[in-house]
Computed example of a mutant assay.
Amino acid sequence: MTRAALAMIVAAGVSLAAPVAMAQDVLVLAAASTKNAVEKLATQFKAKTGASITSSFAASSAMAKQIENGAPADIFISADLDWMDYLQKRNLIKTDSRVNLLGNELVVVVPKGATVKPDLSKGGRLAEQLGDGRLATGDPSNVPVGKYARAALETLGQWTAIEPKLARADSVRAALVLVSRGEVPMGIVYRTDAAIDPGVEVAAAFPPDSYPAIVYPAALTATSQSGQAGAFLDYLKSPEGMAVWKEFGFVPAPKAP
């Protein structure tokens, strides 16, 4: 079975009983918000080294669970610390390879051309502004963007009013699509996601102190057998790699307090 076929199985949510040894190509399971950047980085890395990178993208929670269930993977990139911690506690990553790679920002997006200005003040009127519509974001029970969104809304005293109006998507990109198609009037996503979809625009940014710092950790999995996996992880955090992340709107990971 090829890595590409395995990536399709992982993306479809099918659990594999045990990791399967492959050749020198690298399989990356990554947070949905990293898709465009990782694909460009993979293309550049292949041009430099000849090594093929096969990537699969979904919510960090889904990717972590796939690794836990034995899906083959070489590198995991999470959109929060919690899901990397989840794998580390189960000895499913190579701890010495773990690195805090990136940061991001939480924003409210609306369909392109919409005139609403989301009220993100303390005790604000965001729920009223939705009217009969819903607010799309990742499911706060497990999807990182939804967890950040809940934290921000709780800080602003707006969570209780907003919760019944949530459209709980299975990833940040799924939430983005709901807004882009005009199926909901607002969504909470990362600034990097807003930048890649011409069907939306950023209507407001959450105060930085209203939610935990967004950190994207990356690590080699414990079962990685690819000789190129470590090299690709190094490339992701190299100056050349960081230039690509910056191109897509990511920032360096915030420093630990």
Rank of each mutant, 00 (worst) to 15 (best):
T221R: 12
A161Q: 13
P140M: 08
P185V: 09
G199S: 05
A222Q: 15
D139T: 03
Y211T: 12
P239E: 00
L236T: 02
V179T: 02
Q158G: 06
M186E: 09
S224K: 12
P144A: 04
G138M: 07
L153D: 06
S238F: 06
L166I: 06
L220F: 03
V244K: 02
V244F: 03
F232I: 02
L236K: 04
V189N: 09
S180Q: 08
V143S: 04
A203D: 03
L233F: 07
V184Y: 01
Y216K: 12
Q228W: 15
A203K: 07
E183R: 12
I188W: 07
I188R: 01
D197Y: 04
A205Q: 14
I188D: 02
R181Y: 10
G138I: 00
E163K: 04
G187M: 00
A152M: 03
D209Q: 13
T221F: 03
L135P: 00
I214V: 15
A152Q: 05
V179Y: 01
D234P: 04
Y235M: 04
A222L: 14
P185G: 05
T223K: 15
A175E: 00
R168P: 00
G187L: 00
W159H: 05
P164Q: 10
V184T: 01
V143E: 00
V172G: 14
R134H: 14
A195W: 08
S238Q: 02
W159D: 01
D197Q: 10
E240W: 12
R168Q: 05
